[in-house]
């Protein structure tokens, strides 16, 4: 019996090294494509006011998150209930919220309201402020400018 050590042929080094890398890159690109292209509507945090009942995932008979700006002059606080009208792209939606919204909630500011649409009114269970990415010094003139821009 021949017991002398045998030489085991090496696998091609380049193939061994690049195969996992190629697989990882493919998996990464495929993953990003799935997330970025196919899951977009599922990952979106909110529907805009003009999409309620129109866009997929924004059905008015389900719980929705709706984004729009608080109309100037529409905000009312009565007996612990907040009501206002939010608008986006020409469409408006009345909102009723049992409580006082937190954050920097005010008129002429974008908000996201969570809730269900009942008889054309969004009965909100949560209100969040979606502030812009602009930062300006506190200045009375600028506040008026920004308010007029937001509500025009």
């Amino acid at each position: 019996m021949d017991l002398s050590p045998r030489e085991v042929p090496d696998a091609p080094r380049a193939q061994r090294r690049w195969l996992p890398i190629a697989f990882a890159v493919f998996a990464g690109v495929a993953g990003l494509a799935i997330i970025g292209v196919f899951l977009t509507s599922s990952i979106d945090y909110f529907c805009n006011v003009d999409e309620v009942g129109v866009r997929e995932g924004c059905n008015d008979d389900e719980r929705v998150r709706v984004q729009g700006s608080v109309d100037e002059g529409s905000l009312q606080l009565q007996a612990g209930t907040t009501s206002f009208v939010m608008s986006f792209n020409g469409a408006s939606l009345p909102v009723v919220y049992d409580g006082e919204p937190g954050g920097v909630f005010q008129e002429c500011i974008p908000v996201v309201a969570h809730g269900r649409v009942v008889n054309g009114t969004l009965m909100a269970t949560r209100i969040e402020v979606k502030h812009s990415n602009e930062y300006e010094a506190e200045n009375a003139d600028r506040i008026e400018e920004s308010e007029s821009a937001a509500c025009s």
Partner: peptide, 29 residues
């Protein structure tokens, strides 16, 4: 990149970038 561009790819409660914004504008005093 997924984290940084998440506010561009999808609708987010978080605001878009103020300095490294897609249009190149800087929105800070």
């Amino acid at each position: 990149p997924l984290v940084h561009f998440s506010v561009v790819l999808w609708r987010s409660l978080h605001q878009e970038a103020s300095v490294l914004s897609p249009d190149g504008d800087v929105r800070l005093d």
